[in-house]
Amino acid sequence: MGVLGLTGYIRHQRETFLRDYNLQNTKLIIDGSNLIYILYKSYGIPFKSGGDYYDFAAKCKKFFETLTKKCHVVPIVIFDGADDPSDLKLETHLKRLDQQFANVQKIIRGNTFILPLLADLTFRNILDKLGVAHASCLFEADREIAFLANKFECPVLSADSDFCVFNLKVGFIHPDDLLPLPKNCTGNLPTKIYKCQDLMNVFNRNPDGLILPVFATLAGNDYAEFSSDAFIRPMNAPMAEITSQQNKKEVMYNSR
């Protein structure tokens, strides 16, 4: 669903939050719905006039063969399913549809990227041909991806900032730190990995508990939008008191 501004903040402070990591000899839980977009765009594959599915299929095949044959990585790809029947994300979906319509007009005049319609099907066909394990969730896949990553004690590959607030045992790899793959891979893929413990260390907090989900809600995401004119002090304050003033919500952290 995404946490507003969190990815940009972490990547801007990469020396604090990103650690060196060699991707090899491990399972890798992949956010499939996210990777389709990232792979197509990162390799600069033509997307106008319906897209170049032959080139995209070749890039997908090379990506997974590099992981499995050269780095001995076992990829497990998990896709989002249907929309949440609660309609909690309805407003977000409508906004994204409006943006897609706007992009259709822009693509005629410039180079605004739009994922070709059959990219998803092409990607899944390559997974089937290579025998890569993959599954679709009933609804949004974030929690299932995090569960599998902790179960197998392996990293997650995704550009979704939601994984910045999951307490993952091994961590979270952003595709920008992995793609495009080097031409000559020597058995491992040097990349960067993020762990939420590093974010919590900045605020002297333990990642266990509810502090990260609460933070994500305050920052704003696809389910909740927080708006306040109040100044929110650093998170190392021990307690919070919620008050109401002139019909506006204010959050005030009182330090002892």
Rank of each mutant, 00 (worst) to 15 (best):
C196N: 13
C196Q: 11
D177K: 01
I173N: 02
Q197R: 13
F172G: 00
H174V: 02
I173W: 02
N184G: 10
V170D: 02
K192A: 06
N188G: 05
Y194N: 04
K183P: 10
R205H: 12
V170Y: 03
K169T: 15
G171N: 02
V202Y: 10
P182L: 12
R205K: 15
C196S: 15
R205S: 14
L199V: 08
P180C: 07
G171T: 02
M200A: 14
K195N: 15
L168T: 03
I193R: 02
N204E: 14
I193M: 06
H174M: 04
C185K: 08
N204L: 15
V202G: 08
N204R: 14
P182I: 10
N188Y: 15
D198Y: 11
P175F: 00
D176M: 03
V170T: 12
K169P: 08
H174I: 04
N201S: 13
V170G: 03
T191Q: 08
L189W: 06
P180W: 04
L199F: 15
N201F: 09
N184Y: 14
T191I: 07
P190Y: 07
F172S: 01
Y194C: 07
C185M: 11
N188E: 13
P180R: 04
H174A: 01
L181F: 04
D198T: 10
Y194T: 05
V170H: 04
D177I: 00
G187I: 10
P175K: 01
N184R: 15
N184S: 13
F203Y: 15
P180S: 06
I173E: 01
G187T: 12
G187R: 10
P175R: 00
F203G: 13
K169F: 13
K195F: 06
K195W: 07
L168N: 03
C185R: 10
K192Q: 12
F172K: 01
F172R: 00
Q197Y: 08
K169S: 14
I193F: 07
K183Q: 14
P190T: 04
Q197I: 10
G171E: 01
M200S: 14
K169H: 14
L181K: 02
P175H: 00
R205A: 12
F172L: 05
N201L: 09
L199Q: 05
I193P: 05
F172P: 00
D198I: 06
K183C: 13
D198V: 06
K183W: 08
L168F: 05
C196V: 15
V170L: 02
P180T: 06
N188D: 11
P190I: 03
N204D: 14
